[in-house]
Design a binder for these strands. Structure first.
Lengths: 124, 124
DNA sequence: CCGACTATTGCGAATGGTTCGCAATTATGC
DNA sequence: GCATAATTGCGAACCATTCGCAATAGTCGG
């Protein structure tokens, strides 16, 4: 909790109820969730606030974004990882990250998003 | 042209005007374009048909999808490559692909999408 | 602890990219 | 050519996301 509060304060933001609620949901999540899904799971927080919280967390590199189907999905950024998703049934596994972002010397503050898709054992 | 026609036929699809038009635009494109942008550049083809063509080409692994901002952008799948995009000004560079998709033996037909973002030399 | 100053929220409507349903059209194999 | 199935065009519908603004809530100095 202090970690989040400090990180927000450092960037000139406050730790508020909606932000905390979103953060908690993401910590509990075992897989990426869409903004919609998060909104439905969090009672008492407005839809727009969920989106705003997610955008902020993304900006601070606290969450990762992954596009699954037409929707953006969100999950904690740490530990660095990606997902491999079954195109047929949506089954999803974590994949450890092995990228070397130092390869791009002329860009600074490089971050990345990798999504793998395929057919899982059941659907192959 | 034959290449595209054969590929479509193999999957039980026809080579039609709209599909050809979209394909040509993508070949000419030096960078990924959104469906909207492609639609605006292609006269005489309905919006829905552009979307349908893109979905089909994506399904056949002939084009790659990249999410930039809120929109999906499309570009030719070959040669395999990715992009690094400036978060501030949108400047974009190609990055050669160095992924080994054989790492996932339990999934079949694995494909992937990597997007790098950072601050370009001008914006850093 | 109090007030003031900002950041933030909630709300409901608007936005805008994408998809749908269906009749009319077109490519393909025989 | 013809039959047949795939595909298109159209315009409305969808639905995730964003906007504008008044009301609210953190935070910081005193």
């Amino acid at each position: 909790m202090e970690k989040l509060k400090e990180r927000l304060a450092r960037a000139g933001h406050k730790l508020t109820g909606p932000r905390w609620a979103v953060w908690q949901k993401l910590i509990a999540a075992k897989q990426p969730f869409s903004a919609q899904a998060l909104y439905q799971q969090i009672k008492g927080v407005n839809r727009a606030s969920v989106y705003r919280a997610l955008h902020l967390l993304e900006e601070l590199d606290l969450v990762n974004v992954e596009v699954i189907g037409q929707e953006k999905h969100y999950c904690l950024a740490a530990p660095a990882h990606h997902h491999i998703i079954c195109r047929n049934c949506g089954y999803l596994e974590k994949v450890e990250c092995t990228h070397d972002l130092g390869r791009f010397p002329h860009f600074s503050q490089v971050s990345h998003q990798l999504t793998l898709t395929g057919l899982c054992p059941k659907c192959r």
